[in-house]
Simulated assay, not measured.
Amino acid sequence: MLTQAARSFSLAMVELSQERDILEPVKLAAEELLASLRVSELREFLTHPKIPSQGKKEILLKLVPTDTPLEFSNFLQLIIDRHREKLLVPIMENIIDLTLKQWGQEIVELISAQPLSDVEKQRIAESLSKTWGKKVSLKYRVNSVLIGGIIIRHDDQLIDGSLAGQINALKQHLFENTELPI
């Protein structure tokens, strides 16, 4: 969930990156840092109250590429100074999303019951791109609770192609088209 603080931090970084024409390297640094932050031990280290801020800053700066813009490195240090370490993941995710939107891409969440191959994800992205007339960037995840099928979320739109969604749609259709005896 994106908090107002995470939204504000990420928006400020993207706006500064646009002004300085460093949006692409900032996005790449955010992606690399986000991949590292997926490790729970690292997140625990960065959010531990007994770890000095300087130690947290040093670790963060080692996790980004060496050619990372100074503005992004300073931004990471500011997050630590403001004690917002817990927001690092949503901030990095939103920096990436805002950058993609800035480049005219649609952010679409794809949820499947089983892992999809890269080819399957690519076909879905291409199909959605043709449908919407814009390049689509997929955020993919597996939800093992689904019995089968996929769910696509785009802004406020939900396309439920899951097995449960199809059964519910069929049930609703039958209910609406069946006259009940009085």
Rank of each mutant, 00 (worst) to 15 (best):
L23W: 01
E24F: 06
P25W: 10
V26R: 04
V26S: 11
K27Q: 15
K27P: 00
K27A: 07
L28H: 10
L28G: 00
A30T: 05
E31M: 10
E32G: 01
L33V: 04
L33Y: 00
L34M: 11
A35F: 06
S36T: 14
S36E: 13
S40K: 11
S40E: 14
L42M: 12
R43W: 07
L46W: 08
L46D: 08
H48Y: 13
K50Y: 07
K50W: 09
I51P: 03
L60I: 07
L61M: 07
K62I: 01
L63A: 08
V64M: 02
P65W: 00
P65E: 01
T66G: 03
D67F: 08
T68H: 03
P69C: 04
P69W: 04
L70H: 10
F72Q: 01
S73T: 13
S73Q: 15
S73E: 14
S73I: 04
N74E: 12
L76I: 10
L78M: 15
I79D: 04
R82D: 07
E85Q: 15
K86F: 11
K86I: 12
K86D: 11
K86R: 15
L87E: 15
V89I: 15
P90V: 08
I91V: 13
M92A: 14
M92P: 00
M92R: 03
I96Q: 05
I96Y: 05
D97M: 06
T99R: 07
T99M: 08
L100F: 10
K101F: 06
Q105F: 13
E106V: 09
E106G: 11
I107G: 09
V108N: 05
L110Q: 11
I111H: 01
S112C: 06
S112L: 06
A113P: 06
P115W: 06
P115T: 13
D118E: 14
E120V: 09
E120H: 08
E120R: 10
